Simulated scan of single mutants.
Amino acid sequence: MAKLSNLPIYASRIYFVLIVLQIPFFRIPCRSGMCTSPIQVTSSQLVASDVFPVAAVKALLYPGAIFNDLIYNMSVPSWNNVLGMYNLTDIKGASAMPDLQRLEVLAGSYFSVAGAFIGLLKPQRMSMFGTLLIVWGLVKEGLLGKPVNTDPTRAVYVYPTMLIAVLCAFSSVKYNFQKATAKPPPRPIAKPLKSSKKSKLK
């Protein structure tokens, strides 16, 4: 039971690493072009709407930029060039239609990123909720064909790592197995008061 009780903590940490390092979960059109992780979807929306300072968005993207550059180019990216790497420099003039057509993925990405950071402090359900929203958005487009996409280069694709993210998101929820399996304590039998009629008869 002790190992099982620590599962949400480890699952939350793995989920955080997957999110922050921008491990590809999917490939989907967004404002900046094609996004492959919840952080990229979230960052494109934050930069376009001016909700967060640019430095905060850079800090969100930089760990993943370092990880990907070390793997593919064996180099460390420049801090000043982070937005350029993700096509976010001129995103304010880009069309918001890709994000508006995929509101489930957009909202799910917000919840996933926020849940990944909050989950480090305390395992909770935000990551699971965000991941389910993303999965539903991808299923809706893949199976139901909404929105309709006629460009094969911008087709939606789901990577196998999405399954790992789903497992980690569900495992990060803390369940009280002991409380669920424990039998309720027996109810105490009420004894008659000394001053009652029953006690006087005895």
Score class of each variant (00 low, 15 high):
residue 62 Y to I: 03
residue 82 V to D: 05
residue 55 A to S: 12
residue 63 P to F: 06
residue 51 V to R: 00
residue 56 A to I: 10
residue 64 G to L: 03
residue 88 L to Y: 12
residue 63 P to T: 02
residue 78 S to F: 04
residue 56 A to D: 03
residue 83 L to V: 07
residue 82 V to T: 15
residue 53 P to E: 08
residue 65 A to G: 07
residue 68 N to K: 09
residue 63 P to A: 10
residue 54 V to N: 06
residue 52 F to P: 00
residue 55 A to T: 08
residue 61 L to W: 10
residue 61 L to F: 05
residue 63 P to Q: 04
residue 60 L to G: 10
residue 57 V to S: 04
residue 55 A to L: 09
residue 82 V to Y: 08
residue 78 S to T: 09
residue 82 V to A: 07
residue 52 F to T: 09
residue 65 A to P: 08
residue 81 N to M: 08
residue 66 I to S: 00
residue 66 I to D: 00
residue 63 P to Y: 01
residue 67 F to P: 00
residue 62 Y to K: 06
residue 73 N to T: 09
residue 78 S to L: 11
residue 85 M to W: 06
residue 83 L to M: 15
residue 52 F to H: 01
residue 89 T to F: 00
residue 56 A to R: 03
residue 53 P to D: 13
residue 62 Y to W: 13
residue 58 K to F: 01
residue 86 Y to N: 10
residue 80 N to C: 03
residue 77 P to M: 03
residue 83 L to D: 03
residue 85 M to N: 13
residue 68 N to H: 13
residue 75 S to Q: 14
residue 51 V to A: 08
residue 81 N to C: 02
residue 60 L to P: 01
residue 57 V to I: 14
residue 66 I to W: 06
residue 79 W to E: 07
residue 60 L to C: 01
residue 81 N to T: 13
residue 85 M to S: 12
residue 64 G to C: 04
residue 60 L to A: 09
residue 71 I to T: 02
residue 88 L to R: 15
residue 91 I to K: 10
residue 82 V to N: 05
residue 89 T to Y: 00
residue 55 A to V: 11
residue 82 V to G: 01
residue 85 M to R: 15
residue 82 V to R: 07
residue 53 P to L: 11
residue 56 A to W: 09
residue 90 D to P: 00
residue 73 N to W: 08
residue 63 P to V: 04
residue 69 D to C: 11
residue 60 L to W: 02
residue 87 N to G: 10
residue 83 L to P: 06
residue 59 A to H: 02
residue 57 V to W: 03
residue 59 A to R: 06
residue 57 V to R: 10
residue 89 T to W: 00
residue 68 N to A: 11
residue 90 D to I: 08
residue 65 A to M: 05
residue 91 I to T: 14
residue 77 P to N: 08
residue 64 G to P: 07
residue 90 D to F: 06
residue 51 V to D: 00
residue 76 V to D: 04
residue 64 G to Q: 02
residue 58 K to Q: 07
residue 52 F to E: 07
residue 90 D to T: 15
residue 57 V to Q: 05
residue 69 D to R: 02
residue 54 V to S: 10
residue 72 Y to S: 13
residue 85 M to E: 07
residue 80 N to L: 10
residue 52 F to R: 06
residue 67 F to V: 13
residue 76 V to H: 07
residue 87 N to H: 15
residue 89 T to N: 12
residue 52 F to Q: 10
residue 59 A to G: 11
residue 77 P to Y: 05
residue 62 Y to L: 04
residue 88 L to C: 11
residue 52 F to D: 04
residue 71 I to N: 00
residue 78 S to M: 12
residue 56 A to Y: 06
residue 63 P to G: 03
residue 83 L to E: 09
residue 68 N to I: 06
residue 73 N to V: 07
residue 89 T to L: 11
residue 59 A to L: 12
residue 90 D to Y: 09
residue 86 Y to A: 08
residue 81 N to K: 13
residue 55 A to F: 05
residue 85 M to G: 15
residue 57 V to E: 04
residue 65 A to C: 04
residue 64 G to H: 08
residue 62 Y to G: 03
residue 61 L to V: 10
residue 70 L to E: 09
residue 84 G to Q: 07
residue 54 V to H: 09
residue 90 D to S: 15
residue 75 S to H: 11
residue 75 S to V: 05
residue 83 L to H: 14
residue 78 S to G: 14
residue 82 V to C: 12
residue 70 L to N: 04
residue 84 G to R: 08
residue 54 V to I: 14
residue 79 W to I: 10
residue 83 L to Q: 00
residue 79 W to C: 05
residue 54 V to A: 05
residue 60 L to R: 05
residue 54 V to T: 14
residue 67 F to E: 01
